[in-house]
């Protein structure tokens, strides 16, 4: 039973890369705005159905679909942040009011997509024929696992460059560090919130496209986001490298537990892990200082 462990680890890494993309979005939103966003999982859902439009309706190949799907989801995220959350921030609303508003927008997104004039309630398939897997060092590797890992690596690399090397990226980090100090430096915090919302949405959207490609697209896809939230917590909420590591870890753990331990208790065990990690290290595995 454990003989195919390497196999499960490799496939788990692919899954983990998706969790990581979503978890990084969660963490970026938290780091910049201090917001636990429950609309974020629905960007995965949105990305998956946009993926259906790009790959099935328009017939694009996967690689060509990444940019339009990511951008479309990013724009949706930006609009929701600016139209749906900004008014609450401007009134100095409670943190819990903001969190609840994200819950509300999340429901709106799912219900809008569920309508028959949109994508309907059933799961959609994005793919035609899959290419046969190849063997590397005795481990069967699926091409789509590789594609997933590659896309995630490119995005994470791009995000890292954006946040470290560009003016806007540095401004986003500055706002996350201290809104007041950043304002004194002439940084418009609201604009940076919009940027980070857009970037988080873009990452979530691409993750959604990949979920659609690996499994299926549709309104149920947002459930992936719950595990991704767990991944972000395991890595240390607000830490981007932590979110990456947490995503990969939860992906592998999730897959190995699901296949080799118990498929029925899989989710309970994964959530138990989250609680365990929080109890032992309240600020996550990869974070040195408490938030």
């Amino acid at each position: 039973m454990l003989s195919d462990l390497p196999q499960q680890i490799v496939f788990g890494l692919g899954l983990g890369a998706i969790y990581a993309l979503v978890a990084i979005g969660f963490s970026l939103t938290y780091r910049t705005m201090g917001l636990l966003s429950f609309v974020h999982p629905q960007y995965v859902m949105l990305g998956s159905v946009f993926g259906y439009t790009a790959l099935v309706t328009l017939g694009l190949p996967l690689w060509a679909g990444v940019v339009p799907v990511g951008v479309a989801t990013g724009v949706a995220a930006l609009l929701i942040d600016q139209l749906g959350l900004r008014p609450i921030r401007r009134r100095g609303g409670l943190e819990i009011a903001l969190i609840l508003a994200t819950v509300g927008w999340g429901i709106v997104l799912v219900e809008a997509v569920r309508q028959d004039w949109a994508y309907g309630p059933s799961a959609l398939s994005l793919r035609g024929g899959a290419r046969p897997p190849f063997t590397l060092l005795g481990v069967q590797v699926r091409w789509d696992t590789l594609a997933t890992l590659g896309t995630a690596a490119l995005l994470v690399g791009g995000l890292s460059v954006f946040l470290r090397r560009t003016r806007i990226g540095r401004a986003v980090r500055a706002v996350g560090e201290s809104r007041e100090t950043a304002a004194l430096m002439g940084i418009n915090a609201e604009a940076m919130f919009a940027v980070s919302a857009g970037v988080s949405g873009l990452l979530g959207g691409v993750a959604g496209l990949l979920v659609g490609w690996l499994f299926s697209a549709g309104i149920a896809t947002g459930a992936i986001g719950v595990k991704a939230l767990a991944a972000a917590v395991v890595g240390g909420f607000g830490s981007l490298p932590g979110a990456l590591a947490g995503g990969l870890l939860v992906g592998v753990f999730d897959n190995v537990v699901g296949v080799d331990v118990s498929a029925t208790w899989r989710d309970a065990i994964v959530f138990g892990l989250i609680i365990g990690v929080l109890l032992v290290r309240p600020s996550g595995l990869f974070r040195r200082r408490a938030a």
């Binding site: 939230l229 208790w265 309970a268 609680i275």
Partner: peptide, 27 residues
Amino acid sequence: PLLRLRGVYFAMASFAFGAMMFEVFGQ
């Protein structure tokens, strides 16, 4: 034991607690 976590961390831990209990109920 989760109560020693603060703010958003407790919120997430309690969320995970609820999700875990739901799995237990279902299984």
